[in-house]
């Protein structure tokens, strides 16, 4: 897959330093279109920093990277046209209704009124939010908020969607449903880049990349990784890699 001619994301020796602290230290990887790419690591390993660089929210200190074929130094605005992003913090407007949020985020990505109508209806039906559609997002349970935030992040059919710990604090059943949404998106051809520290979720990914102290320590499919570390659980793989970590929160 690394030899795919047009990778969705490609990173080469990408680094970010904060006052001499190497938050991200020369990470290299490629993500193929349609892949569900898991980005694993302990707290403070540099996952979010790496993701923010790829999303065009933060300038790298050194190294190269392209997202959807656009350069992270010079073409952030083009990158932003082509990606969806769901941050660690819930970032829909809590004082707007479900429909108003859909309309707003669809609107700023340039969806037409016709598209907005169809998409809203579709989304509300898929998530089963018919009776909540006109209520403020504030009142929704966390699991629903997260599912809504994800659906809104891919409303404009981006090439890639970045998910930063999307299932934090959500119960296992809802997490399961959340991953079904990611699969559905991948079926539509959307590449998913997901950070998580739930190892069961790592199993859902086509490939995972494990970060320790800002560096990529392992990168392969879950099955290959388990074989490589002579174990049958991702938990164990992660533990073997991460126990040497210096950082932590």
């Amino acid at each position: 897959m690394e030899t795919n001619p047009a990778p969705a994301i490609s990173s080469h020796e990408l680094s970010k330093h904060f006052d001499g602290f190497r938050a991200v230290d020369r990470i290299s990887f490629e993500v193929a279109p349609g892949e569900i790419f898991g980005f694993l690591g302990a707290n403070g390993a540099g996952k979010t920093t790496a993701m923010r660089m790829l999303c065009g929210l933060s300038y790298p200190t050194s190294g190269q990277a392209t997202v959807a074929g656009f350069d992270v130094y010079r073409q952030q605005e083009q990158i932003k046209q082509n990606i969806g992003y769901m941050s660690q913090k819930f970032s829909l407007y809590e004082d707007l209704t479900v429909l108003e949020n859909i309309e707003f985020f669809g609107g700023i990505y340039g969806l037409t009124n016709q598209q907005l109508r169809t998409k809203s209806e579709e989304l509300v039906t898929t998530l089963g939010l018919q009776s909540e559609a006109k209520k403020l997002v504030r009142g929704l349970p966390l699991g629903w908020k997260q599912k809504l935030a994800f659906s809104v992040a891919i409303l404009h059919d981006p090439k890639i969607v970045f998910l930063d710990e999307p299932t934090g604090g959500v119960d296992p059943v809802t997490r399961r449903q959340f991953w079904e949404l990611i699969y559905a998106a991948a079926d539509r051809g959307i590449t998913a880049f997901v950070t998580t520290h739930y190892m069961d979720e790592a199993e859902y990914c086509s490939r995972v990349c494990i970060m320790v102290d800002g560096r990529v320590e392992a990168l392969d499919s879950p099955a290959n990784l388990k074989q490589q570390f002579h174990t049958d659980s991702m938990d164990d793989v992660f533990y073997q890699l991460a126990r040497g970590a210096q950082r932590g929160e």
């Binding site: 999303c55 065009g56 929210l57 932003k80 046209q81 992003y85 941050s87 829909l92 700023i108 990505y109």
Partner: peptide, 13 residues
């Protein structure tokens, strides 16, 4: 504070 500005910064606005 709410983090919604990041959602706008990551959009083509």
């Amino acid at each position: 504070e709410l983090g919604t500005i990041e959602q706008l910064n990551v959009s083509p606005i």
